[in-house]
């Protein structure tokens, strides 16, 4: 293999860009963590101290034991996110498989239709959805929120799964069917294991979107005890006194930890999902 030689200048430029990238990426997160460990007295210090003078978990304590029911928001977030993952995986896998493998009228129309729905501004759908939820008493329910979240993750998942199934050679499946498997058996025993990364990716995207979603729980839930973390944070810090920066950063850290953990452990699937399925149909 032939490698280009590294000149000093080239090497220097690379190092500078690397350094910039790392600082640019990590500093905001570092600052969030540091501020959450400061007292508010520390936060207002001029000039600001890079490390907390005496690190304290007070802000976290206040969040968990204070007047904000953050544990309730957290539980609501977990339930609705996992619910979304569950529904999205099942429905997207079935539909994605059908769109990839089966031949029927309107196949192309449905495929394109599913793709286009990902582009719709959700906020426009939200208005009729709100009126519909008022009528069907789905406001302030987990199921209402989960259904709302799937409006992004199902079309997205269908295309991702479709991309993955496309990449599984049909010969393998046909061979299984020649051996006496029914289509569903072939699907379960041959195709599903092969597209497992795609299914995991669908689940991860559904989780990330549901966990991070602000718009739906902000409007489709007006019972405080049913709010998820993002709108809960607006209620906790949208008050008259916005100066609790430390508390705000502590809450930010708590919201971020689950998604960062999921991302770091499962990023292989995400990358594969995006580059193999979702974006490149």
């Amino acid at each position: 293999m032939i490698e280009r030689k590294f000149s000093i200048l080239w090497y220097g430029a690379l190092a500078a860009i690397l350094l910039f990238t790392v600082i640019w990426t990590l500093f905001p997160m570092f600052w969030m963590l540091v501020t959450s460990l400061k007292t508010n007295l520390d936060v207002f210090q001029v000039p600001p101290t890079i490390l907390p003078q005496d690190p304290s978990l007070k802000s976290y304590e206040n969040l968990i034991f204070g007047s904000t029911p953050i544990y309730k928001y957290f539980i609501n977030s977990v339930i609705t996110s996992l619910g979304t993952v569950f529904i999205s995986i099942i429905l997207a896998t079935l539909a994605g498989y059908a769109l990839s493998r089966l031949r029927f009228r309107f196949r192309k129309a449905i495929s394109i239709g599913v793709l286009v729905t990902q582009m719709f501004p959700l906020v426009v759908l939200l208005i009729p959805l709100y009126l519909l939820y008022v009528k069907t008493h789905l406001l302030n329910t987990y199921i209402g929120l989960i259904l709302g979240f799937t409006s992004f993750s199902i079309p997205f998942g269908i295309w991702m799964i479709k991309g993955f199934v496309d990449s599984v050679p049909i010969e393998i499946e046909e061979a299984a069917m020649v051996d006496g498997c029914s289509r569903f058996q072939a699907m379960r025993m041959v195709v599903l294991p092969l597209i497992l990364p795609g299914i995991v990716a669908t689940g991860v995207f559904a989780f990330l979107d549901a966990w991070n979603n602000l718009l739906f729980p902000l409007t489709l839930v007006n019972d405080i005890s049913m709010k998820t973390l993002p709108p809960g944070m607006i209620l906790a810090f949208g008050g008259e006194f916005k100066h609790d920066w430390s508390g705000m950063m502590a809450a930010s850290t708590i919201i971020s930890i689950p998604v960062v953990v999921v991302f770091i452990l499962l990023q292989r699937y995400l990358v594969e999902g995006l580059t193999g399925g979702a974006v490149k149909g």
């Binding site: 529904i87 099942i90 429905l91 997207a92 079935l94 539909a95 498989y97 059908a98 769109l99 089966l102 029927f104 196949r107 449905i110 599913v114 729905t117 719709f120 426009v124 759908l125 939200l126 208005i127 009729p128 959805l129 009126l131 519909l132 259904l147 709302g148 799937t150 409006s151 199902i154 079309p155 269908i158 289509r183």
Partner: peptide, 24 residues
């Protein structure tokens, strides 16, 4: 077969995407 596989997803999407879109 296609209908069976597609129906759940399409039904749900009708409820949360297509109906709201038309209503909008």
């Amino acid at each position: 077969t296609a209908a069976i596989l597609l129906a759940p997803a399409l039904l749900l999407m009708t409820f949360i995407i297509f109906y709201p879109l038309i209503r909008a």
